[in-house]
Amino acid sequence: MPVNARAPHFVRSFERGLAVIRAFDAEHPARTLSEVARACDLTRAAARRLLLTLADLGYVRSDGRLFRLTPRILELGYAYLSGLDLPRLAAPYLEQLVSLVGESAALCVLEGDEAVCVAQVPARRVMAAAVAVGARFPAHGTAVGRAMLNSLPEAAGAAEYVLLDGDPEDGVTTLAAPVRDRGGQVVAGVSLAVHSGRMSATTVRRELLPRLRAAAAAIEADLRITDPAPDASLGTATHR
């Protein structure tokens, strides 16, 4: 089959419709008919038919000259996101966090009085501080456990983050932030582990906390467009 040939089942109009949707992005949130046609290599007539069809379906709106996507476009990604469990949903954000700060990151959930690691990405260096998936720790003794416990409804006050400075025994400083679902309930915690000799607690707070909180916020944003009542596969936090 030639390189540019399509299989018999291929629906060209569907491909063109998806191309029109992809023509809108952060740099081009609004486009004219001519701009859409040019970006998608379509005639103006074809682009107009596709845009009007998307408008009839509620995915595009127009003020007469400019076309924009509507929030309903999020429905197209809902089925994919709702099928993810929390560790897989969080994985790309953990990987991005590690690439930005160069320290090991982990995602933990509460099971009773324990913090359980359900996903982790180690730093790419020798002697990186990291925990294994499946590892369990007394929640009160860990930064990520405290971040989750302090965010439970019965806690005195929600903590935006918890920092535990390294002690002489393990020499690891940990920084953690809670992750909340659409209803504002804590479902997990994200943490960073840093060897104390490499970075002081003050530096950890100043340089790593904004990145950590951004990662937690990104995970929460994905959770907001998934099932508003996560089941056990999402690692919903429970406490005895």
Rank of each mutant, 00 (worst) to 15 (best):
S13Y: 12
F14D: 09
F14A: 09
E15V: 05
E15P: 00
E15Y: 08
R16C: 03
G17W: 02
F24G: 02
S34T: 10
L42E: 06
L54R: 01
D56N: 04
S62C: 11
S62T: 13
R65T: 15
R68S: 11
P71I: 11
P71L: 11
L74G: 07
L86T: 03
L89Y: 12
L89N: 02
A90N: 02
P92H: 11
Y93K: 05
L94V: 13
E103F: 09
C108R: 07
E114D: 12
A115M: 04
Q120Y: 08
V126M: 14
A128L: 07
G134I: 09
A135K: 04
R146G: 05
A147I: 05
A147F: 06
M148A: 06
P153F: 13
E154C: 11
A155C: 08
G157T: 13
A159P: 01
Y161D: 06
L164Q: 03
D165M: 04
V172S: 02
T173D: 04
A177D: 13
G184D: 09
G184F: 03
A188K: 01
S191F: 02
V194N: 05
R198Q: 07
S200A: 03
T202F: 10
T202Y: 07
T203K: 00
R206Y: 14
R206V: 02
L208P: 02
A221H: 06
L223G: 00
P230D: 12
P230F: 10
G235V: 08
H239N: 09
R240S: 01
